[in-house]
Design a protein around this nucleic acid. Structure first.
Lengths: 334, 334
DNA sequence: TTGTATGCGTTATCAA
DNA sequence: TTGATAACGCATACAA
C-alpha cells in the first residue's frame, strides 16, 4: 500500500495533523519538527492522496475542459493555448467530450458539477441550459465559455461578425459580387452563436455594398470537414445561382475541400471562383493556392481561458483581454 | 449543498447502506424498497460523489492519458480513436502532458500513480524508468504503451521498420538511388524507439538493393514540424551529397515543409526530387503534389488502447490486434 | 432483505 | 507549537 500521512506521523512520532500542516506549508510548525517530517517524507516517498484531500474539501483539484470533440482543429488549438500555460502539478486537466451529442450537453455539465466537483470548467463552444448554469453558480463553480456567453459566466470570444464582414468586404472590393457562403447549420440552436454571427457579418457586408442576399448562395454543412467542402463544391457547381466567390465560414478545412474539388472539376481558383476561409490553421498556408482566410487567435483564446480558470482558483480577478479581433490574412485564393 | 446518500436514506426512511446498494444495482434489495429509493433519487436529483467512492475503493475511476503534447497531430489522432469508443460516463479521461520535458516523465508517472490513483494509464510514445514501471505493477495499475514497450506492459505498436522499408523500397524500384532521410533525433534515448526503427528500415531497404548508406544524406530534425521541413529542404539543397529522393520519416507535416521549400527554390517534386512522407494525416492529400506516404493506423491504435484499458478495468482479457502494419499510399509526390 | 459499525486519507476546529 | 476529535461521502464485512 502507498505511504500515508499516518505512516509519516508514526515514523516521526507526531500526529497526522502535524504532518498535514507541514505538507501544506503551514508556518506554525517549529523548524525542528518540520525538518524531521520533511526528511521522513523524502525517505518514505510520501505523496498526498488527492482523493482524500478532495473529499474533505468538497471539491477536487480539477479544471474540466468540455468540448464536442477534442480532435477538431479548433479544440486542438485551444488545447495548445491551455497547455502553454504552466499549470501547477496538483491541478488536473480533465477532458469531457459530448461527441457531438447536443442533447447530452446539459446532462454532462450536471454530471461534471455534482460527481466530479471541479474547481472550474472551460467550455469550448458549448452552452448548457440556463437552470444548469444557475446550479453551477449556486455551487460556486465557475464556467469559462469559449465562443459562447451567458449572463454570469466569463467568456472568451472573437468578434465573428467583424471577421466575416472583413472577408466579404474584401471580396467585394476585389470586384466579386456573386458571393456564396458555406456555413455551419444556421437553425441549430445549441452552440451555434459563432455560425450565426458570421452569417450576419456576411449579410451586412453585402447590404453595405448594396448587394442583395440570395438564399440560393447559402450552403449549410454539418461537420466542418474536408469532405463537407467537397460536397459543397458539388452544390456550387450544380446550383444555378452562379458564384464568383465563396466565403467559407465553416473553416479552412472545409475551404480546402472546396478548393480541391473545384480544381478537380476544372474550375480555376481564384480566377473563376475566389475562396476565403476562416480560422487560419496551418493547412491554409500549405495548400496550393494558399488560402486567404480570417485568422483566429485560437491559441491566445485557450491561453486566456486557462488564465481565467487559474485566477478564479486563486481568487484573483482576471484582468486581461477577453474579446479578440480576427484579422484577414491575404494569400493566393482570393 | 449537494444531495448525498444520507439525504435519500432519511427521506425514504432506510439506512445509507440500503441506498448505496440500490445505487450500485445490488439485487438483494426488495423491489418495493428499491422503487421507493429510485423514486427519491430522481426527485431529489441525487448523483453519486465520485470522490467519496474513489476514496473508499482506493482508486479513482480515471484513465490517465499521458503524452508529450496533446496538440501534436499524432496525439490528436490517437485521441480521436480513444474518443470513438463509448466510454461509460463514470469513467474519466485525464490528460497529462510532459510538455516535452523528458526529465519529468518518470516523476509525472509517479505523481499520477500515487496522487491520482487511476485505473489505468495510456502512454503515448512515453516510457518511464524501470523502477517506476515496477511500482505500477505492484499497485496493480496497468500501463498501456503506444509506440513503446516494456516487459510487463501491454503495448500498441506499428511495425515502423516495415513501414520505412516499404517506402524506401518503393523509391528504389522507381529508379531513385540517392535517397536521403529526414529523421527525428537518432541519439535521443527516451521515446525514440520509432525513430530508430524507421531508420533501420531505411538502411535495410538500401542494403537489400546494394546501395551503400551515405551519412551525408541523413538529416536530423527535432520537432516534426512544417518549419523543420523548410529547414531540411535548405540542407538538402546545400549539401553536396546530392539527392534524387527524400524519405521523410519525421512525418507528413515535415514532408509538407520540405516540398513547399523545394518548390519555392525551383526544385520540381517529384521530377527532381521525389518525397515520401510518414503518417498519412489529412494534409497529405490536401497539398499539391499530394503526398505519397506511409499510412499509420493511428486512429485504430487509439481505439485499441482504450479497449485494452477498459478490458483491464472490467477484468477481461483483451484479445484483439496489438501490432499494426503501416501501408504505403501512393499519390503524386513519388 | 436490511442495518450496524468501521474505515478509506485528509483537513478543520478547537483545545491544550 | 502541537494534538484530539470529528467530519467529508461512500462501500464493505458482518450481524440481525
Amino acid at each position: 500500500m502507498a505511504v500515508t500521512i499516518k505512516d509519516i506521523a508514526k515514523h516521526v512520532g507526531v500526529t497526522p495533523t502535524t504532518v498535514s500542516m507541514v505538507v501544506r506549508g503551514d508556518t506554525r510548525i517549529s523548524t525542528a519538527t518540520r525538518e524531521k517530517i520533511q526528511q521522513a517524507i523524502k525517505e518514505m516517498k510520501y505523496r498526498p492522496n488527492y482523493i482524500g484531500r478532495s473529499l474533505v474539501r468538497g471539491r477536487s483539484n480539477v479544471i474540466a475542459v468540455v468540448s464536442g470533440f477534442f480532435s477538431s482543429m479548433f479544440s486542438v488549438e485551444i488545447m495548445k493555448g491551455i497547455e502553454s500555460k504552466l499549470i501547477p502539478v496538483e491541478i488536473k486537466l480533465n477532458q469531457y467530450a459530448t461527441r457531438g451529442m447536443k442533447e447530452r450537453v446539459s446532462e454532462l455539465f450536471r454530471e461534471i458539477l455534482y460527481s466530479v466537483r471541479p474547481q472550474s470548467v472551460i467550455s469550448i463552444s458549448l452552452k448548457p441550459e440556463d437552470d444548469v448554469l444557475m446550479e453551477f453558480q449556486k455551487e460556486g463553480v465557475k464556467i469559462i465559455m469559449i465562443e459562447e456567453s451567458a449572463g454570469n459566466c466569463q467568456s472568451v470570444k472573437v468578434d465573428n461578425e467583424k471577421g466575416a464582414f472583413s472577408a466579404v468586404d474584401y471580396l467585394i472590393k476585389k470586384g466579386r459580387s456573386k458571393i456564396g457562403i458555406v456555413s455551419g447549420k444556421l437553425e441549430d440552436g445549441t452552440g451555434a452563436a459563432a455560425v450565426l454571427e458570421r452569417f450576419n457579418g456576411y449579410r451586412s457586408a453585402l447590404s453595405m455594398h448594396g448587394i442583395s442576399y440570395d438564399p440560393k448562395r447559402l450552403i449549410e454543412t454539418a461537420n466542418f470537414s474536408f469532405e463537407d467542402g467537397i460536397e459543397s463544391a458539388h452544390k456550387i457547381k450544380k446550383w444555378d445561382a452562379g458564384f464568383d466567390a465563396v466565403f467559407c465560414a465553416a473553416g479552412d478545412m472545409t475551404a480546402a475541400g472546396v478548393i480541391r474539388e473545384l480544381q478537380e472539376t476544372g474550375t480555376k481558383v481564384p480566377d473563376d471562383i475566389a475562396v476565403v476561409g476562416y480560422d487560419d490553421i496551418i493547412i491554409a498556408s500549405v495548400i496550393k493556392p494558399s488560402l486567404t482566410t480570417v485568422h483566429q487567435p485560437i491559441f491566445e483564446m485557450g491561453y486566456t481561458a486557462i488564465n481565467m480558470a487559474l485566477d478564479h482558483i486563486n481568487k484573483k480577478e482576471y484582468t486581461g483581454p477577453a474579446v479578440f479581433t480576427p484579422k484577414l490574412v491575404i494569400r493566393e485564393s482570393a
